[in-house]
Amino acid sequence: MPVSLNYIFKRVLLSILVVIGVIVFSYILLLYTPGDPAVKWAGNPRGPEARKAIEIARRELGLDQPIHVQIAQFIYHVFTGNLGLSIAYKVPVSQVITSGFTATLELLIFTYLLAVPLGLWLGIYSALRRGSRFDSFIQSLSVVLASTPTFWLGAIIALISYSTTGFLPYGRVSYKLATSTGFNPITGFYLLDALIQGNYAVFLDALLRIIPPALAISVYPIGVVARVSRTLVAEALLEDYVRSAVAWGVRRNTIIKHFVLKSIIPPVIQISGLAFVYSIVDAMVVESLVFGREGLGSILLDSLHKADFRVTIALAIYLTIFYISVNTIVDIIQASIDPRVKI
């Protein structure tokens, strides 16, 4: 079912409006919160160079120009990825943000590739065996897991891993191993890079280090997807079209596969998308503080501690853009697989 361009256009237009709103909002925060915006933008510099750095920041922001020009300029800089040099890392802000995104995305994508199918399976399975011991177990488990703080669970997992195997999952890959085998991160997705280079030692090491945080983060999407798909299957089983299919002699397996599952996939995709954007924050918290992985979380903490205002604000803006993009993409996917959505 082809999605008409009109729908995509409308959806994307709305998203761009929202993104611009967020950029304006953050610029206004920069201007009107206590303190000189140029000083903040320059990263609260001290010493003899301070005056010069603040002057540069003032010019970069164009603070002497009227406010609408400043905002337009700022929006332009955001979309061209040109927010200057990071104070803390001494490399372009865009580079810092990109490396953070690839690291966190690797963790999140890994998590979701496992979590969504598992949650779907659990939800369907317990719906089809409603009231069974398996069903009530999954129900109670999902309630408990949904109440568990992810970072705490991550710590418990690390603790268990350390006390049983002596392995402490820390960082994205063993630095020593990576240098000794000549591992070269090209895409920034270490698992992918290691596979492409045939570096199985690094792949295994990276895998062992990604699994514990992924486990902790996966709890939320597994719970949400299982819960939602159970309810959806239950509702689908009550649909008139399932009843009529039964009466026409369609077998149980066909009904489940073609009449029930087809109807729950679009809403499951949508709920997974919502869970995904929620998990980004989860991942940032868990990866940085608990598992010591580089990523958006560690960049956030670093930029805060080093008063690297540009990176902080760039992180906030690009995180929001990412949020909205995921939501938009999910909406478009969902609309394109539901034949009822006349677009």
């Binding site: 967020v22 925060l29 919160t33 206590p34 980004i280 924050v281």
Partner: peptide
């Protein structure tokens, strides 16, 4: 509805970040 959409799209951690920078 536009405002609702706008604020739904901002991760709360981003807002916390802004406040932490300024307050």
């Amino acid at each position: 509805n536009y405002l609702t959409e706008l604020f739904m799209a901002i991760p709360s951690i981003v807002i916390a970040l802004f406040f932490r920078l300024t307050l």
